[in-house]
Design a protein around this nucleic acid. Structure first.
Length: 567
RNA sequence: GCCCCUAUAGUUUAAUGGAUAAAAUAUCAGGCUUCGAACCUGAGGAUGGGAGUUCGAUUCUCUCUGGGGGCACCA
């Protein structure tokens, strides 16, 4: 709870309110700055809420003389509303923010807890499309949210490097692109070959046998194919690493399916021995989860081969051995919601006790329908990035023809990535996105560039107003409505970050960034900062600007979005 | 067939069971001799249908309809 709420709570306690206090916000500023709803109180006193509020407001007004923060208390129907003294409100909120800077908002609630965040868990030899991008954006933000709450966060990746998709890709490579010189982006090239092979196989089912032979060769580490396998896997991994670097994903370690598969097979044997698993139809190994409402899970094929689930069990064993986390978070598309319920139940039955969390995010679809790598109707991360970059590049050279090429490119890169991340993260995770390629390219309104622009505007003010000492500021100079509204936004930061964290929902932060930036731009057009003759007022306003910058940057940091000095 | 998710302005998104359902975009009408107009101001425009619980429902329950996803040898 912030200092402001604490003070108001004390005031309520002095007036006889007991127990935990919950506040809400009045619908408009004319009705006050903070509200105490009297529904619960009225219920416990068995009275009418409006009357309770009226009596309470009168009582509080009698106790008000010693409180600097609260100037006035008025009841509106069943609510008791508090009006704050703007100067004191500013002092309570801004002092802390300006002093702590980047550290403002950090806490140690997660001390001694370790959380493993596994993402994006993509496949080698396939493309990196905007679905993966959504995964990465969510994973980054969730990991950051845990970090600001003091958790020890371990980011890991799990690469599926040994499935049928690899065989398909290698087969396609040899059949259609043998002797061809690979282009610069070899990871993307492989993904396109995979998609091409899949399309071909759909029309020519007779070729499936050739792919099956390829897979057998791979599994036998056949000399005719093994070096190519290793080489192409390397290309994929290198391509991913580059994209991860741009997107600010830093994995502590990477698990490979090739390695977890046999661990999983051992786990299946153990489950069989413990009677958690049993032999099912045709000799396959299953876990009967029907009494938990989770149907039957297939753990091993009748021919002895493993499946995804086999490897995932092995992965859990491996991760546990290495990290002993208190919580393990998995991010995948919603298609796997049911699958993860099964996986978690089996692990639970096998005696694993750490918290298991699966975040299923909605599919990213195109206006033309569902995307599938196999069909080739996807938007690749690289292509999307290039489009956005180009658009923002044009806009930037229009304004800053005098900048060096290096400065332009660095700035445009940050804005482009910010635009993309912001656009993807503004949707709640579980909802599907119909991806509008034009939407992400715009930079007006509820967009990343709008927020980044706001920070650049503030930078400009702070540079020009350097002479003001921001350490000893007379916050009493902040008096008007726009200033108060902005301070209120800043005061909300911690509550919003907490909400995002508790619900595993970064979109809360995205909206918060925008609301705060909007409040600033409104303030900016109505209140002049540098042009005020009174130095005390100028300094107080600059201090407010600095606090807004800090809060915006801290919020954007949670989303892994960089700001720029100028744009 | 069974199970899960989802439905809010033309479009994209908000709203711990609580005050007049909030924004963005698009449309229309305005604002730079002014600290950065990638900005700001104004107008019109929405809770899929039906029942129920409640003092009060966008929110909870049931049902119908539409959309998406999943359900044993794919990943």
């Amino acid at each position: 709870m912030c200092k402001v709420h604490k003070q108001v709570e004390n005031l309520l306690k002095k007036s006889g309110i007991k127990g935990e206090v919950f506040f809400s916000v009045p619908p408009n500023p004319e009705m006050g700055d903070l509200a105490y709803p009297c529904f619960d109180l009225a219920k416990s006193e068995k009275t009418n809420p409006a009357e309770t509020a009226k009596n309470l407001a009168e009582k509080i007004n009698g106790n008000l003389s010693k409180f600097v923060l609260v100037e006035k208390v008025v009841n509106y129907g069943p609510y008791v509303n508090f009006y704050f003294n703007t100067g004191e409100y500013a002092r309570l909120i801004l002092d802390d923010i300006v002093k702590k800077g980047k550290k403002f908002g950090l806490n140690k609630n997660g001390k001694n807890k370790k959380v493993l965040v596994e993402y994006p868990s993509n496949n080698t030899h396939k493309e990196l499309h905007i679905g993966h991008l959504r995964n990465i954006c969510l994973g980054n933000s969730l990991a950051n949210l845990f970090e600001i709450n003091g958790y020890n966060v371990v980011r890991v990746n799990y690469l599926n490097d040994f499935g049928a998709h690899v065989a398909k890709c290698l087969w396609g490579l040899l059949k259609f692109h043998n002797k061809e010189k690979p282009p610069k982006n070899r990871q993307k090239w492989l993904g396109e070959i995979y998609a091409e092979a899949s399309r071909y196989l759909k029309d020519h089912p007779e070729a499936a046998d050739e792919v099956a032979i390829m897979q057998q060769k791979m599994e036998a580490k056949d000399k005719s194919i093994w070096p190519l396998y290793l080489q192409t896997k390397q290309w994929s991994v290198e391509g991913f690493e580059k994209a991860f670097k741009d997107l600010k994903v830093v994995h502590k370690s990477v698990f490979y399916e090739k390695e977890t598969k046999h661990v999983g097979q051992k786990m299946v044997d153990k489950l069989l021995k413990n009677k958690i698993a049993q032999v099912g139809e045709g000799g396959a190994i299953i876990a009967d989860l029907t009494k938990y409402g989770l149907d039957i899970a297939l753990l091993r094929k009748s021919n002895g081969a493993g499946l995804y689930l086999t490897s995932d069990l092995g992965l859990a064993v491996a991760k546990n051995k290495k990290y002993k986390a208190t919580e393990s978070i998995h991010l995948t598309s919603v298609e796997q919601n049911f699958y993860f319920k099964q996986l978690f139940k089996i692990l639970e039955l096998a005696g694993y006790k750490y918290k298991m969390t699966h975040i299923g995010y909605g599919l990213v679809t195109l206006p033309s329908g569902k995307m599938a790598s196999r069909e080739g109707n996807v938007i690749l991360y690289e292509d999307l990035y290039k489009d956005v970059f180009e658009r923002i590049y044009q806009e930037t050279i229009k304004r800053h023809g005098d900048w060096s090429k290096k400065k332009i490119e660095e700035t445009v890169k940050k804005i482009s990535l910010g635009a993309i991340k912001f656009d993807i993260l503004k949707h709640e995770a579980q909802k599907s996105i119909v991806f509008d390629p034009d939407g992400v390219i715009s930079f007006d309104g509820f967009t990343g560039p709008y927020v980044i622009y706001t920070v650049a505007r503030i930078n400009s003010l702070l540079n020009k107003g350097k002479k003001c000492p921001l350490q000893k500021v007379d916050y009493g100079c902040l008096k008007n409505q726009e200033e108060k509204r902005l301070i209120k936004c800043l005061a909300d930061y911690q509550t919003e970050a907490e909400k995002a964290f508790k619900n595993y929902n970064p979109s809360v932060i995205v909206k918060y960034c925008f609301d705060t930036a909007k409040a600033f731009n409104d303030f900016y057009t109505k209140v002049s900062v540098l042009k005020t003759d009174d130095e005390k007022i100028r300094c107080a306003r600059l201090s407010l600007c600095l606090a807004v910058k800090i809060i915006l940057q801290n919020s954007l940091n949670i989303l892994s979005i960089d700001t720029v000095e100028e744009m």
